[in-house]
Amino acid sequence: MESIVHFLFSHREVIFIIVLSVFLGIEVISNVPSVLHTPLMSGANAISGVIVIGGIILVGHSDTSRISLNLVLGILAILFGTLNVAGGFVVTDRMLEMFRKKKK
């Protein structure tokens, strides 16, 4: 019990951020027309590729003088994360491009 309280207290700032961003996320999405569900999902999907930063930190501070399993896995994490980010944003843009055409 004490350890939980300690954990919560020592991470209070992060917990603040998490709780507030949950509400922000809900607030931002709630009035979206169903037409935009797919692009929105795809855009959010691209943002979840932010994990690529974790991969960068990992590979950035690992020993590159020899090939280790962790280095290989870290590089794979960057590759997968980037696929998620780049592919996600490009495919979203492609969907939205079609919406824009009709505005002419």
């Binding site: 992060v14 590729g49 932010v50």
Partner: peptide
């Protein structure tokens, strides 16, 4: 959510914010 949790390991604000944001927006969606 998984990205946000990983961000927690590094105390990395961008990962935490981006991840949680997608987590909650995705759930509402």
């Amino acid at each position: 959510i998984a990205a946000a949790l990983a961000g927690f390991i590094y105390q990395n604000q961008a990962m935490i914010l981006g991840g949680i944001f997608v987590g909650s927006a995705g759930t509402i969606l």
